[in-house]
Amino acid sequence: MRRSDESGHELGNLLAVALANVEGMLDGLVEPSPPKLEALADALRRARDIVQRGESG
């Protein structure tokens, strides 16, 4: 239970990073620079890993 709580929190944070930045790019407030896009891809990969761990566990 505790582990799934932590995973849920982490997942929420990673998706919040992705959503905030993509909306920010659409609204012209975040520059879609390669490092920024790489950081977003990293957040989404970590979110994917959490989802996959949840499915296998």
Partner: peptide
Amino acid sequence: DEPQIAEVVEAYLER
């Protein structure tokens, strides 16, 4: 504590 969120929120509010 997540700088990547805080930065974006800051940019929106400053706008």
